[in-house]
């Protein structure tokens, strides 16, 4: 009882703290990092519902991310539809795409489902490249200006600073967390986990496998499309590789694998590690750090070599991290934390 009160108090404090950050932090870079973090949590949490709870490891979530992003951007670019209307169109488009994909791919199990999900996302990417009249092909869509968000005549925000994006991102995080919490505490969560643990057993217990897999997919896809639309509007640019590429799908999945699949805090932990890490590697922070502590001379051959190559090696380092996590923490960080807690409880008894 005391523990639950403590927990909810902590959660409320956390949310209030996050709400207050833009008041005190003005650095656009810090806000940018927070927005990237929010986007990552939202993506991971969306994937988690299908991949973590229902055990359907889709490596094609770029399809939903990209369709959401593209629909919103295309409507804004060619028809002048404001994004907060376009987002709904994006979600509707994604529901259609998800149901088509689901009805085909869910006939397959395990690795075959994974392969099919990759194939479908690749089809979407190639379509985006080749349907030039609609998507502007490989050039992508650039939105130079986002229309202000008005309710009636009052301007709520004009999207000039990063602050409105910060709040939208935070909203997305809270939304995905709330949906996950609801799934976990309802019949859906039980059915999803039963399907994950043993599909045949679940089937014999009266669970309509195809129906519940598709429900999981639609929930997951709609949330992913929201994150995609948000990405499009925030960055102001979408092209096939950045929103529909295979690495987008892999990135989304990694958040959960590293953080812990099928747990509510897994994607949060995963994002807390992956987002700063990829940023540090990309911006050559490691070389700078080595120079600063005096281990490497910036002008020496090693220093120059590192400066030139380490930022390109971020994919490699990323890969090594993933291998280590999968080898030593097969249930992700959350699984590892839980194991430690269980061990401590045992020792206490």
């Amino acid at each position: 009882m005391n523990k639950t009160i403590l927990k909810s108090a902590f959660n409320i404090l956390l949310v209030v703290g996050l709400l207050l950050i833009p008041r005190y932090v003005e650095s656009p870079y810090a806000l940018h990092m927070m927005i990237l973090l929010f986007m990552s949590v939202a993506q991971g949490q969306s994937w988690n519902i299908l991949g973590g709870y229902a055990g359907q490891h889709s490596v094609g979530h770029a399809a939903y991310f990209g369709v959401g992003a593209y629909t919103t951007m295309m409507l804004m670019h060619s028809k002048g539809v404001v994004p907060w209307v376009g987002v709904w169109a994006g979600m509707a488009a994604v529901v259609v795409v998800a149901l088509i994909i689901g009805s085909i791919c869910f006939r397959l199990r395990g690795p075959y489902f994974v392969l099919a999900s990759i194939a479908v996302a690749e089809i979407m990417r190639l379509s985006a490249i080749n349907l030039t009249p609609l998507t502007n092909g490989a050039e992508g869509i650039l939105a130079t200006e986002i229309p202000a968000f008005k309710i009636g005549a009052t301007v709520v925000t004009d999207f000039v600073t990063k602050v409105p994006f910060y709040y939208i991102g935070l909203f997305l995080v809270l939304l995905t967390l709330a949906v996950t919490y609801w799934v976990q505490h309802s019949k859906l969560g039980y059915f999803f986990q039963a399907i994950r643990e043993d599909q045949d057993a679940a089937h014999s217990l009266g669970i309509n496998i195809a129906l519940y897999k598709n429900i999981g997919l639609v929930i997951s896809a709609v949330l992913t499309s929201l994150a995609g639309s948000f990405y499009g509007i925030y960055v102001g640019f979408v092209d096939p590789p950045t929103v529909l590429g295979l690495d987008v799908s892999v990135q989304i999945m990694l958040i959960c694998i590293i953080g812990g699949m099928g747990t509510i805090w897994g994607p949060v932990l995963g994002s807390l590690i992956l987002v700063p890490l990829s940023e540090a590697l990309r911006s050559n922070m490691v070389t700078d750090l080595l120079v600063k502590i005096g281990m490497v001379n910036a002008d020496s051959r090693i220093g120059i070599f590192l400066k030139e190559n380490l930022s390109h090696a971020h994919v490699l380092l990323y890969g090594i991290l993933v291998v280590l996590v999968i080898l030593f923490m097969p249930d992700g960080l959350m699984g590892f934390v839980k194991k430690l807690a269980a061990r401590r409880n045992r020792e206490a008894v």
Binding site: Y190, F191, Q193, A194, E197, D198, D200, A201, A202, H203, S204, L205, G206, I207, N208, I209, G262
Partner: peptide, 30 residues
């Protein structure tokens, strides 16, 4: 099988199929 179960016929498995990562009560709740 799910429709058959809803009609009131259910089977168990020779090679047991527990939902391994769920607790006993959660298994039965499913």
């Amino acid at each position: 099988p799910d429709k058959v179960c809803m009609l009131g016929m259910v089977r168990t498995w020779q090679k047991v199929r527990p939902l391994a990562k769920l607790s006993v009560v959660d298994n039965v709740m499913v």
